[in-house]
Nucleic acid binder design. Structure first.
Lengths: 204, 204
DNA sequence: ATGGCGCTTCTACACTTGTAGAAAGAGGCG
DNA sequence: CGCCTCTTTCTACAAGTGTAGAAGCGCCAT
């Protein structure tokens, strides 16, 4: 399965991206990170653009994969979402967020780097249907809760949640926040997300 | 006033950063953008780190400047903030946000690039007391509204608002959003921000 | 074996970038 | 005027980077 090699390389690239930023993402750096012979990355991704596209695709795949696996309390089409379940839903989302902050930190950082990169390279945006899934999920949830214009509200909701994540993962809001991976962090996130959910579901 | 030259160069650097990302930020690119002779940037900022630090400092200065000039409806220490003024406050914030999306887009993009960069270069974080002012402002506002733990809530609030901004400025949420600079955009932002403000002030 | 064919590894090379220092001006002052 | 200092401009160069192609190698069918 040569697929393997692609996965190894793109995963290494994601970590390079997280550790050294878009500037540090070079063929040779990926080789080093993956502990593969020099030139390997260059052979698999002949151009830099190809490498970045592969990374973006990989990120999208990973996201899709564990968005499906996560089984968030709120599933698209599952109408069992009403205001009573808000706290449960918030807890589920908080769990996912907490994972993005701890184990998934590299992926989160790489993701933001790629999002920024997609600004000047529109071809990436088509691959990055990023958060599109989350947006849809949020929209159906809000629709089930009877919110007007659930598309718009859903987009805003995930944008806010993403803002919470960015703030923490970029270390901007490092002042006195509980360390990721702890129950304290999950609790804080749960109440924050619950606040958001309530806000976005309550609006008429 | 040699200060002039510094401002010109760092402003050019900010636009380079917005247009080509952290990877495109090179001494020569800044020279070109500023339409100054090759080597100028290199003479003023002998190392790349110095250049980045200058950019970050400039961004912080600009932010400070128009945070002071903006005279947001909610001023620190001004206790005239109660729930009745929420819509006015939201409109003010929306106005600022809209400007970040239109005229200030380059600065916003540069800002996010630098925030990501600060992840691997802690010395930038000290300069970047970024959003610290906004956070304080939000905190005092929430404190005035009688919110428990206003620091935490304020941080979360500005993180969410920043998420809204990132979503739009990075073009991720380009689906069917009103173009920045229009009244429609400001309206949509106003209601979204108002939702957030109400959510964060209402919680206990 | 033997030759062909994939994948893998290595090497070469032009070009960009960071950085330092030399050259060239541009005043001020004796 | 000639000299000195500071700013600006130019040049040089080592190191890193993107990219292409050559060389090596395992493997299957003939």
């Amino acid at each position: 399965m040569p697929n393997d090699r692609f996965a190894v390389l793109t995963d290494a690239a994601i970590e390079v991206l997280a550790d050294f930023g878009m500037r540090g993402l070079t063929h040779r750096a990926v080789d080093a990170r993956a502990e593969l012979p020099l030139g390997t990355t260059s052979a698999y991704f002949r151009t830099r653009k190809a490498l970045i596209e592969a990374v973006v695709r990989r990120l999208a795949d990973l996201d899709r994969a564990d968005l499906a696996a996560d089984q968030l309390p709120v599933e698209p089409g599952d109408p069992a979402v009403d205001l009573d379940d808000v706290d449960a839903a918030a807890a589920g989302i908080a769990l996912v967020l907490d994972r993005w902050m701890s184990a998934g930190r590299s992926r989160a950082l790489a993701r933001y780097a790629c999002l920024l990169e997609a600004t000047h390279h529109p071809e990436l945006r088509s691959i990055l249907a990023y958060g599109d899934a989350s947006r849809r999920q949020a929209a159906t949830m809000l629709a089930a809760a009877g919110v007007a214009d659930p598309e718009r509200a859903g987009g805003q909701l995930v944008a806010c949640i993403d803002g919470l994540l960015f703030d923490r993962v970029a270390g901007a809001g490092s002042r006195s926040a509980p360390p990721p991976g702890t129950a304290a962090n999950r609790d804080e996130l749960t109440t924050a997300v619950a606040t958001l959910l309530r806000a976005f579901t309550n609006q008429t």
